[in-house]
């Protein structure tokens, strides 16, 4: 017979324990999300991110989408080439890293629980960022 039969609504600690036992374990893990070191190279008038494919894989986002965001934010032309992103402009590494962090905050990190386990889904004409860890859904504007 279920423990529901004689449940005490006012025994908060027991209810809390019961609820937490029904939540998957990984939800409570607090491991910090670490992005791989960004390898930025400046050659004359061009800036190259050498491990761009690795970065896109780490954040589980489409390479082209990530690249499009960076190109737009930095206001430069550029292209993807063999796992590298080449920007046709000289950009300081600090600026580039801050733009990458903006991308993570907008399109990768869940605002509710801070985890990066999210994916982009489409509902009608609206794009939503759904967190696979805590289930939160947030509308986003695509580029």
């Amino acid at each position: 017979m279920s423990d529901l039969e004689n449940i005490d609504y006012y025994d908060y600690k027991a209810l809390l324990k019961r609820a937490r036992s029904q939540i998957p374990d990984y939800v409570f893990q607090k491991d910090r999300f670490e992005l791989p070191e960004i390898e930025i190279l400046i050659e004359g008038n061009r800036t190259i991110i050498r491990n761009f494919r690795e970065l896109a894989k780490a954040v589980n986002r489409d390479e082209e989408f990530f690249a499009k965001y960076l190109l737009k934010e930095t206001g430069s032309a550029g292209n993807l080439e063999g796992g590298r992103l080449i920007l046709q402009r000289r950009i300081s590494p600090e600026l580039l890293k801050s733009r990458i962090n903006d991308f993570l905050r907008e399109y990768v990190i869940c605002r509710e629980c801070g985890k990066p386990d999210t994916k982009i889904i489409k509902e009608g004409r609206v794009h939503l960022l759904k967190c696979m860890a805590c289930g939160a859904i947030r509308p986003i504007r695509m580029i």
């Binding site: 529901l4 209810l15 937490r20 029904q22 939540i23 289930g135 939160a136």
Partner: peptide, 14 residues
């Protein structure tokens, strides 16, 4: 006062 998690449907039966 019932503690729940709507996304994980914890304690929804309570």
């Amino acid at each position: 006062i019932i503690p729940i998690s709507a996304h994980h449907e914890a304690n929804i039966d309570v």
